[in-house]
Structures are given as C-alpha cells and as structure tokens.
C-alpha cells in the first residue's frame, strides 16, 4: 500500500456566529493557509475533495459556491461527500492509493449557527417512525447517557470530569470556542447538563495529503496514515446496544489501532457520555492523551468536527508532540457511523 501522509492542516477560529461571512468567505483563508504551508497552488494539487451538508445551510447545492474559494481553473479533479470532511479525506486517501494522484486538498466547513442544529439533525432519522416525533440530538444522546449510567459505566460526576478536562485542554487551543472553566449548568435533557453538550460553532478546516517522497518534500515531519477505516451500524436506536460502539471497534481493528499503543487520541465525541463509549470501544488506557485539542466539547462545527479531529492529531505529529495518534470521526444519531485513522510520525 502506498505511503500517504497529512502534510498540512489549518482551521478557522471556531466561532458561535459567522454572520459576517458567507461559507466561501469563511473557508477561503483556511485554504490559503494550507496552500502556503505546502507551497502548492490549485493546479499542483492532484485531487480535491470536500464534505458539507445542504441541510445545515438550508440551501440545495450549497457546496457548489464553496468551490469558488478553491480557484478551480483550469478545471480540477474534484469530488464532494454529503458527510463530515473526515470521509472526504477517506475518499482522497483512496484516490491517492490508486496512484491517480500524489497530492490532495481536503476541506470541510459548517455553519451550524443559522439553523437550530438540534432540530435540523432530527431530519437524519427514520422518516416514517422517528422523524415525525422530532427527537433532537441532545435527547438521543441523553438516552444513550442514561443507558451508560444504568449499566454502571459512568455517572454524572464522571461526565462532568470529562467536560472539565476537555475545556481545560481547549484553553491552549487558540481556535476553540468553549474553553477554560465552564459550569456544568442545568440539565438540557437529563442526564445531560449544559456542560455535557457541545457548543454550537461555525468554522472551516482543511488538510493536504501527499504520497511518499512528495510528503517528505512538503512537510518536515509528515503524519503518515498507517490505516483508515469506517463502519456503519443499524439505524434504529432500539436495535443497538447504546453503551457500545462495535462499528468504532471494527474500524479501529481494520485501521490497525490495536497493533501498537497510541499516545494520543482525538475523538469526535460531541457529548461527554460518548467519550465513555469510544474509550471502551477503542480500549484506550489512562496513559493516552485524549482530546488535547479540547475535542468536540470545545467546538463542534457540524460536518467539520471529524476532519478537525484528524487535523489536530496530525498537527501534534507535525510538531513532534505525538508519535502515534488515533483520530476518530462520527456521524449519525448516537455514534451510528464511525471512522478511525491511525497517524504516525517518523522516529525523532
């Protein structure tokens, strides 16, 4: 299999509102940053892939205008997934593995603030039996959290601890939105309190992938993708064991997570309770640095938060702060679909 690495990563500030910017205005500076980091321009890049959602924007074909920020002229080889950008990166990685491209630009962006994201996400649910009841994203996560509490896997103080640790880590992250000391607050949907839930944020993220020697040329310490896999589970919550994430575990196995210990894990767990599920599925010990960026509890830009986890993990390898990191992205209600990537740096 071809050696492929993440050689550049950039993100916008993840902000509560971005009224002053259209999607492309928000995205473009981030694209410029990764191009500057690598010295590549649009025509040097072999493949471009993005992830976003029309439902978040409230407009059909919203991604077509974002392409304006790329400078797709002369025409480029390009694709788009209606998924978190992590899956766009998966598509780009596969493209490079075929040998058809040596480099790829991957980006995603989300404006979570214009709509009520709790309600927007109800439109993901079974349109016959579930969506007509409008169960919002916090309610579904709360059902999962209660199942974990009933199973003795966590309790409210432990969840509060995850929230505090995440926001404390985010204090060092200039781009994060919710950081430092954040009170747990009242229940949003019991047992989840305000502090257990992610902030609503807008933002953009981009990474550049490159193969082999090209990666070494573009980056002092490339974050090599040693494996990447994603799996989906049944849709209905009532047929799943909400206290576990077999799809995460399987994706991790396929990605090679369990072959050697990781030192860092960036987990896309929008709710504190979901970190409990993911830690179990991924068999992460206390010695693993989980979400040093603050994770999705510090900024949860829907459609970008997964790619952001991968970018944050890669950046730690770039900076020499990690040698082997796991990055995870999720999609769908209560962790229905999960992606896991293993990133490594060359020996220092």
């Amino acid at each position: 299999m071809r050696e492929v690495a993440i050689v550049a990563f950039a993100q916008s500030d993840q902000v509560r509102h971005s009224d002053e910017q259209s999607e492309v205005e928000m995205l473009m500076p981030v694209l410029h940053q990764v191009k500057e980091q690598t010295g590549l321009n649009a025509s040097d890049i072999g493949f471009t892939c993005s992830g976003s959602s029309d439902y978040l924007a409230g407009r059909a074909f919203s991604f077509t205008m974002a392409l304006d920020g790329v400078g797709a002229w002369p025409p480029i080889s390009e694709s788009h997934v209606e998924m978190d950008g992590a899956w766009a990166m998966y598509e780009a990685w596969v493209k490079i593995l075929t040998g058809e491209a040596d480099t790829a630009l991957v980006y995603s962006y989300g404006k979570t603030s214009p709509g009520s994201v709790r309600d927007v996400l109800t439109r993901q649910l079974d349109p016959y039996y579930v969506a007509p009841l409008w169960p919002d994203a916090v309610a579904l996560a709360a059902l999962q959290a209660q199942a974990l509490i009933d199973a003795g896997e966590t309790d409210e103080p432990a969840l509060a601890g995850i929230a505090a640790r995440s926001r404390d880590s985010a204090a060092d992250n200039a781009h994060a939105l919710m950081k430092g000391s954040v009170p747990q607050g009242d229940y949003v949907v019991q047992p989840l309190r305000k502090g257990d839930c992610p902030p609503i944020s807008d933002g953009a993220v981009a990474v550049v992938l490159a193969a082999g020697d090209k990666a070494r040329e573009l980056c002092a310490r490339p974050a090599w993708i040693r494996g990447m896999d994603h799996r989906i589970e049944a849709h209905s919550l009532g047929v799943r064991d909400l206290t576990d994430s077999p799809s995460t575990r399987l994706a991790a196995e396929r990605a090679g997570v369990f072959e050697r210990p990781v030192d860092t894990a960036e987990l896309h767990a929008p709710f504190t309770s979901q970190e409990v599920v993911l830690r179990k599925a991924l068999k992460l010990g206390d010695d693993v640095n989980v979400n040093p960026s603050g994770g999705a509890l510090a900024a949860n830009t829907v459609m970008a938060a997964g790619l952001l986890r991968i970018g944050e993990a890669a950046a730690r390898i770039h900076r020499g702060e990690s040698d082997r990191a796991l990055a995870h992205a999720t999609s769908g209600p209560c962790l229905q679909q999960n992606l896991v990537a293993v990133l490594e740096g060359d020996a220092q």
Partner: peptide, 15 residues
C-alpha cells in the same frame, strides 16, 4: 422502559 431521558423543554413537533 430500557432507557429514558427527561426533556424539560418541549420543542416544536415533539409529542
């Protein structure tokens, strides 16, 4: 009941 969550604030469209 196999799990539950208390919804203190009714939202549009919910039962």
């Amino acid at each position: 009941v196999t799990t539950w969550a208390w919804n203190p604030e009714h939202r549009r469209g919910q039962p």
